[in-house]
Amino acid sequence: MAPPNAHIVKSFDDDLRALRSIIGEMGGLARSGLDRSIQSLLSFDMELAERVIADDRRIDDLEMEVEAFAISIIARRAPMAQDLREVIAALKIGALIERIGDYGKNISKRVASISDSKYRGAGSGVERMGQMVSEQVDDAMRAFLDRDPYLARAVNDQDEAIDDFYESLFQTLLGEIAEDSELTAPATHYIFIIKNLERIGDHATNIAEMVHYSATGEYLEARAKGGDATGLTLPL
């Protein structure tokens, strides 16, 4: 989408740019947290896992900054039309990225428990799923930064592939537990991890939906986000 014309009041553009740049920074941090959490999991790197957990603070702080800044823009500028949509989208996207950061942190928190076990079976599936989800987050953030409704729609469309992948990994892990009850504990951790990844994918999709609304004023037709029903059959 072509960038909109400049505002007559230039500092209004500065405000919107600054708001976008905080969101951009948050998105970068959340994606890096996600990538490093998977990396720490695959290599049982406790130090890296600890760093991911510690770095999540920064994302939380930025989210509060986004919230305060968005409120201030609404109060001072009374944004209308696309500007209003953009500020509201930033507010919601900030909250979504913060959740993505939390999921990455949760994955890192499981590294210690998993490294105690000799089970290594799910590694490559988790690695692949981690990549898919990370790319989704990246695409969603690029769609936001470029105000690109087409990329936003593509993110929305790709979510199904992640749900399918989750489903098959989930079935595999259930099967392994059924075969060898000693694997119950580590495989359950992996189930939570892939569930977290699946939720990150949903949040990337939610970001894409906000981007689409912000850019066009139209909602993407709602798509049922998969992966929820299977949660009920968790063997716990």
């Binding site: 909109p4 014309n5 400049a6 505002h7 007559i8 009041v9 209004f12 944004p79 209308m80 039309a81 696309q82 500007d83 209003l84 949509r85 004023g217 139209e218």
Partner: peptide, 19 residues
């Protein structure tokens, strides 16, 4: 009109972008 105007001229006016 104020959340999603359709005409460019409307949008530019209400968002303070009128040249």
């Amino acid at each position: 009109i104020f959340t999603n105007p359709r005409a460019d001229r409307t949008r530019d006016y209400i968002t303070g972008r009128f040249g």
